[in-house]
Design a protein around this nucleic acid. Structure first.
Length: 686
DNA sequence: AGCACGCCGACT
DNA sequence: GTCGGCGTGCTC
């Protein structure tokens, strides 16, 4: 008799294990691993969706088995390697595998499934041959023979990217079998020769992916956001046939994601490129996992079980014996830790390249334009000279025009009359609007002194652009910020004002770069300010033309000299040593426990001895609950996760009615939930 | 979650 | 004796 072992699709932690169901004769021929099924749970009549994990001959379960009710679809959406990964990811984070599968398997799309089944019925056509071109300049800066050997040896690397741009030779050998006209030009636009400048990092990762695909194996490439993805895909198209590149990202519609996920289950070797979710895509023969800029906060998953993409990558590379590459301009302290314990091997550019970074603490003269006051005269002169020859980048901290407004009379922060949110201005002429509810501040008056006029506090990208426009008459000014992102600019002289992370790519690189607002960026209260700044600045520095001057304004000390001498790993190593001393992450692991006082206290008591002595709190948090932070060493991680998991289950299955005599006596009440979140750095910032 | 099982107090 | 309220525990 066939037995289906299934994972029930439910958030209940007590059901997070496999259940056995008998397969009735009429389903036996069709059922298989990875399919979605419906199964009865507890009592006939109640049905639950489930994934078939395996089909076996006998069950260990004593007692009669219920029968699988129905096969929802014969399309195997859950690949075995994804199941294995989901289980490990959930276990590491004290969470449920079904929560991970929710992220890994997009919701069903019947039309896409029909197409897929029809295509499969037609018979698998042999994959197209692979005319892989390995552009030698793409790995320039590294010894490419070493990289190829490292891939073959399944090495784990911390790769420091060369902070330069590279121009790709257009579609070098990457013939598109489906017709080369796929690079769509928007209707009405005159076709311009494509700007094929990308960060060198993108060309390097693309080459590693091409080497992997040439061996008949998949490569998974993760990027933080769409801007990086655009560069990486451009670089990939130069070395891998377009038909072998599969995107998986948040911008796609559900059917697109579903189609991509099913394609990844095919036989041909592919490059899978996308945001953090791409690390959960099916990939049976996996040769390489590469993560670009792992310090970017977009890699921390906001949904339960909150597993960071870096950890997913580490687990998966281990499970599937794939090569692993963490690449970035600035290393994260997490990667530095892995280097220092010998888990990752560092790969430095050879020959070494040092960008021309000029730090200065000195502020500009206060005469002249307001923007002038933020810019030291040396930087000003350098920008003025450089803009004759091409674009100059100015990086600022805040988007908009005036990120903050205050009453002109009493100086109190200007607040929305409807919801008390802070007001801000997006354009110089715009009516101020509330940052929270969006309401326009029409007929505003100060709630402290009844005055009706405001003044700006701080300077956004828009205002900086206005001021620079006046300072450089006749020069084009381009603004790129969070809401209006520009990915590429052309060669023309221009001042490009961008908020950190929104810098466009310029052909050949910027002729000069001014990093303003450094002081303000460093003022953020967070455990990771220094490494965040290092990342924001080094990513911008990498957009400069060869040896073009980069002025880092208002920053001194070790951070500035690390950038000036381009010895970022040394700085990060010192940073990590400080954290080790203070026992802060990533030197140690942490878990936050949130819930009612009694539940949190019980969970703390259940911890292993060593961890119990390193509990911060519990402290009150909004919502009538408390939060405790536990610190422990990596070696204890598995123990702590297992113990906390059992506490979560206990909390969920314990008495759900309030004790006798209380006000809601007899009424059903939400279970006394315990929320566990591992490796959350939020509690260490504010 | 949602439902059955079983253990004590009040009933024909 | 047995009806039913409510607390406890399980779900193949």
């Amino acid at each position: 008799m066939a037995v289906a072992r299934v994972l029930v699709d439910t958030p209940l932690p007590q059901l997070d294990r496999l259940f056995d169901y008998a397969v009735p004769a009429k389903l036996a021929a069709d059922i298989g691993p990875g399919m979605r099924v419906r199964v009865p749970l507890r009592t006939a009549g109640r049905m639950a969706d489930a994934f078939v994990v395996e089909v076996v001959d006998t069950s260990e379960h004593e007692g009669t088995l219920s029968e699988v009710d129905e096969i929802i679809s014969t399309v195997p959406v859950l690949a075995p390697e994804v199941w294995r990964l989901a289980r490990a990811v959930a276990d590491r984070a004290g969470g449920s595998a079904s929560d991970v599968l929710r992220l890994a398997v997009p919701t069903r799309q019947v039309r896409v499934e029909k197409q897929w089944l029809a295509a499969r019925a037609e018979g698998a056509s042999a994959p197209a041959p692979l005319p892989v071109v390995t552009a030698p300049e793409a790995v320039a800066g590294y010894r490419s023979t070493d990289l190829r050997a490292a891939l073959r040896a399944r090495a784990r690397l911390a790769l420091d990217a060369v902070p330069l741009l590279v121009e790709l030779s257009p579609a070098a050998g990457a013939e598109d079998p489906e017709g080369a006209g796929a690079r769509a030009t928007p209707p009405g636009d005159t076709p311009t020769p494509p700007n094929l400048w990308v960060g060198r990092w993108a060309a390097t990762l693309a080459t590693l992916a091409a080497m992997t695909v040439a061996e008949g194996e998949n490569a998974i490439l993760a990027v933080p956001d769409y801007r990086d993805q655009e560069q990486l895909v451009t670089a990939l198209e130069a070395v891998v046939p377009r038909a072998r590149i599969v995107r998986l990202d948040a911008k796609q519609s559900n059917p697109e994601r579903y189609r991509a996920m099913l394609r990844a289950r095919g036989d041909e070797a592919l490059v899978l490129v996308g945001n953090r979710s791409v690390l959960l895509a099916p990939s049976e023969r996996l040769g390489l996992i590469a993560v670009w800029d792992d310090g970017d906060p977009l890699y921390s998953e906001p949904l339960a079980p909150y597993v960071h993409a870096r950890d997913t990558a580490l687990l998966r590379a281990e499970q599937q014996n794939a090569a692993l590459v963490f690449a970035g301009h600035a290393r994260s302290t997490d990667v530095q830790r892995l280097v220092e314990i010998g888990w990752l091997i560092e790969v430095l550019p050879d020959p070494r390249y040092q960008p021309h970074v000029i730090p200065t603490m000195q502020q500009g003269s206060s005469e002249g334009f307001a923007a002038n006051a933020r810019i030291p005269s040396s930087a000003w002169a350098s920008a003025k000279a450089a803009v004759e020859f091409g674009p100059v980048l100015v990086q600022v901290a805040h988007p908009g025009y005036a990120p903050r407004l205050a009453c002109a009379e009493c100086g109190d922060v200007a607040r929305c009359l409807k919801c008390s949110g802070p007001l801000q201005k997006h354009d110089s002429g715009a009516v101020p609007a509330c940052a929270w509810c969006g309401a326009l501040a029409v007929g505003w008056h100060c709630q402290t002194c009844e005055n009706t006029t405001m003044r700006s506090i701080g300077t956004g990208a828009g205002r900086t652009a206005d001021e620079l426009g006046r300072a450089f008459p006749g020069v084009k000014v381009v603004v790129s910020d969070g809401s209006r992102q520009i990915t590429r600019v052309d060669d023309e002289p221009a001042i490009v004002v961008a908020t950190r992370g929104a810098e466009p790519v310029a052909p050949g690189g910027y002729r000069a770069i001014l990093l303003l607002d450094g002081e303000r960026m460093l003022a953020r209260e967070s455990l990771r300010v220094a490494e965040d700044c290092l990342r924001w600045w080094s990513d911008a520095i990498a957009l400069a033309a060869h040896r073009a001057p980069v002025h880092l304004v208002g920053v001194g000390g070790a951070l500035a000299s690390a950038l000036a001498t381009w010895t970022l790993p040394r700085f990060v190593s010192t940073e990590l040593a400080d954290r080790r001393h203070l026992r802060f992450p990533p030197a140690v692991r942490v878990a936050t426990l949130t819930g009612q006082t009694a539940v949190v206290e019980k969970a703390v008591d259940a911890l292993p001895e060593a961890a119990r002595h390193e509990v911060l709190g519990p402290v009150d948090v909004p919502g009538g609950t408390v939060r405790a932070i536990v610190r422990f060493d990596y070696a204890q991680g598995a123990d702590v996760a297992r113990l906390l998991r059992s506490q979560v289950i206990r909390a969920a299955t314990d008495r759900r009615r309030p004790p006798k005599g209380s006000r809601d006596d007899g009424r059903r009440v939400a279970p006394p939930t315990l929320r566990v979140r591992f490796d959350d750095v939020e509690p260490f910032s504010d």
